[in-house]
Design a binder for these strands. Structure first.
Length: 577
RNA sequence: GCGCUCUUAGCUCAGCUGGAUAGAGCAUCGGUUUUCUAAACCGAGGGUCGGUGGUUCGAGUCCACCAGAGCGCACCA
């Protein structure tokens, strides 16, 4: 139940009636009309700009139109306490207590669906995220995209969409060969005491490879680790499986579970790459040609060569993209084309890809391919998560893959915990770089928004505990005819914004709006709570250790909104802290 | 050189797809605990929304140009 949308419908049907009776002229397009939250310094609940939109065509000032409209609006709505016109021509409405009683009743009895965007068409989504190379455990850099993807899924699921979460396993190509070689050398180190060549920069030096090597030795006693070429294929499968085990464990400790893992090697094996490229050739979108050197590049070093190219310039990319390497094997892009074709064949309504900032340049070519393959625009949405700058003790902290001194997800979770990581990573728009300060995130104080919101829920729980009620049980109130104070209505207004928050978060795939909303709601609640210090009548529990129904249902709906918000974010709401 | 993203208070950032007097937190200064949880609250100071033009009833928000920061620009994934 979105009160802003409901009122917008009301206003629109009202002006339509007026126009039928020839009392007012309407423009062709009514989309400009909206019903919004007024700034807090105006003492009213909702406001609308109708009169500004109607002003031009009626050749009257917005104020005059507004004066005309408020009489009609008021006489059509018994829930209005006060209606007024403000400066440029806004119509401001304040509701009476009957309205807020109905609101609170509605929210309490349908709390499970409060906030769900019911007008959105239910769709089938495929969201691909993380997809880090299976060459070792995840590190901090992967976290943001992982959490972003997970919470976007949660929002879509909350809105009753069908969502499939997928991880694309890049188990094909040079870096995998290097990885397998590194595992092989670690095995040799263990079995034959041959020193691992740490000076070779192509290899993976990390200590986790020793564990992987040990596991493989333990479980595969029959394999003869003499000749790399003889066993490289089998060893790749084993090594990737070990990596994926680590990655899945990392994801699990972040609270993330993917529905499906798709292997690049499998796509290549099934000839899906050839098939899709043949198809694109027939559509004249793949051809043999040359790529010119970018301006920056030293032209003497540039080797121009005929190769298979995809015509992404047809779709606005700056150059066509290579599909084959000079050894004729497929490029990463080629198998990604096949992967996206595979996605499209599974009949999803929308595809979502979550990418890291360093892959942002990749978006154009992949959206081009999806457009070419599906003949549809906007079938795929790519969402970029910007970098996370790590800060430790007030100083930037650089990770180096070379030295192997990067912070893994496991380190992060043991140090700051899953909930704090998720909440902090989401507390900013994904479009901006994020400072992740270890010392601050660990602090259990007001510096940390997670605890601020959790504390709000814990305070409400403590009231329920004191009056011996279960906060998790449904609350049945027989009669709603309460009188709420201005301070309480302020919070009810904030509650009424929850569906709007969800709507925008889901429409624009911006999950950060949820933690921000929860913080604001908590702030208003804490403020209200402290009123009880000076004024005993504002306390929830009275001197007879009882709580009245109005306060009880008021607390209940706040706690429900916090709980469903925190569920979407994927963090706990402890009843005691 | 090209592309993408960003620029809002001393610092870190919100700003609901164009609305009213631009908001939080931190930091600074000053207050509130015989109390349902002080992990909280209240108050004060702090702003040319990077710059210049444009679009319109109305711009932090949209467009153009300029400046600055980050990321990317092979047959690496």
């Amino acid at each position: 139940m979105n009160i802003f949308d409901l009122y917008l419908d009301k206003i629109i049907s009202l002006v339509k009636t007026l126009s039928k009776d020839d009392l007012i002229k309407l423009p062709d397009n009514l989309d400009g009309i909206n019903v919004d939250i007024p700034p807090s310094n105006f003492n009213c609940d909702i406001s609308t700009n109708v009169s500004m939109v109607l002003s031009k065509i009626n050749k009257k000032s917005p104020i005059d139109i507004a004066d005309q409209l408020i009489k009609v609006i008021k006489s059509n709505d018994s829930d209005i306490e006060r209606i007024s016109v403000a400066k440029p021509g806004f119509i401001n409405i304040k509701f009476n207590s009957k309205y807020w009683n109905n609101f609170i009743k509605e929210v309490n009895s349908n709390y499970k669906n409060f906030g769900v965007n019911s007008k959105e068409k239910k769709q089938k989504y495929l969201i691909e995220f993380v997809s880090a190379n299976p060459t070792g455990p995840l590190h901090v850099g992967h976290c943001r995209g992982a959490i972003l993807g997970d919470v976007i899924s949660n929002i879509l699921i909350f809105n009753k969409h069908n969502v499939s979460k997928e991880y694309y396993v890049n188990d094909y190509g040079n870096q995998i060969i290097n990885f397998t070689k590194s595992v092989f050398l670690r095995i040799r180190e263990k079995l034959n005491n041959e020193k691992f060549p740490t000076e070779n920069t192509d290899l993976y030096p990390g200590d986790y490879l020793i564990d992987i090597a040990n596991n493989i030795i333990q479980n595969n006693k029959k394999i003869n680790f003499e000749n790399f070429d003889a066993i490289s294929k089998d060893l790749t499968i084993l090594a990737v499986a070990e990596s994926l085990k680590l990655i899945k464990k990392n994801l699990q400790s972040l609270g993330i579970v993917h529905d499906k893992f798709i292997s690049e090697t499998q796509l290549v094996k099934n000839n899906e790459v050839e098939k899709v490229i043949d198809y694109l050739k027939k559509k004249k979108l793949v051809y043999e040609g040359k790529i010119q050197a970018p301006k920056k590049e030293d032209e003497t070093k540039w080797i121009e060569r005929k190769q298979l190219l995809f015509k992404s310039t047809n779709y606005g990319d700056d150059k066509d993209r290579a599909l084959q390497k000079n050894d004729m094997s497929w490029t990463y892009f080629a198998s990604d084309v096949a992967y996206h074709n595979n996605k499209l064949n599974r009949n999803f309504d929308k595809l979502i890809n979550i990418l890291g900032a360093d892959h942002a340049g990749y978006i154009k070519r992949i959206t081009s391919v999806v457009e070419a393959l599906s003949n549809k625009k906007n079938k795929i949405i790519c969402k970029v998560s910007q970098l996370v700058k790590l800060v430790k003790d007030g100083k930037p902290f650089k990770m180096s893959k070379r030295k192997g001194d990067y912070i893994t997800v496991e380190d992060l979770i043991t140090e700051v915990g899953k909930d704090a990581t998720r909440f902090i990573m989401l507390n900013r728009s994904s479009d901006v770089e994020l400072d992740f300060d270890f010392t601050k995130v660990k602090e259990k104080s007001k510096d940390n928004p997670l605890y601020y919101v959790q504390y709000c829920y814990a305070r409400i729980s403590s009231v329920f505990r004191h009056v011996e009620l279960d906060i998790n049980k449904d609350l049945n109130v027989k009669k709603y005819n309460f009188k709420y104070s201005d301070a309480e209505i302020k919070i009810l207004k904030k509650i009424s914004e929850w569906p709007k928050c969800i709507e925008v978060a889901s429409l624009r795939l911006e999950p950060h709006r949820i933690p921000i909303y929860l913080y604001e709601l908590s702030s208003e609640f804490h403020s209200y709570w402290n009123l009880g210090k000076d004024d005993e009548s504002k306390r929830f529990i009275n001197d007879k250790r009882k709580i009245s129904d109005d306060k009880l249902v008021f607390l209940k709906i706040i706690s429900n909104v916090i709980k469903s918000g925190m569920n979407i974010v994927g963090v706990d709401t402890p009843e005691k802290m």
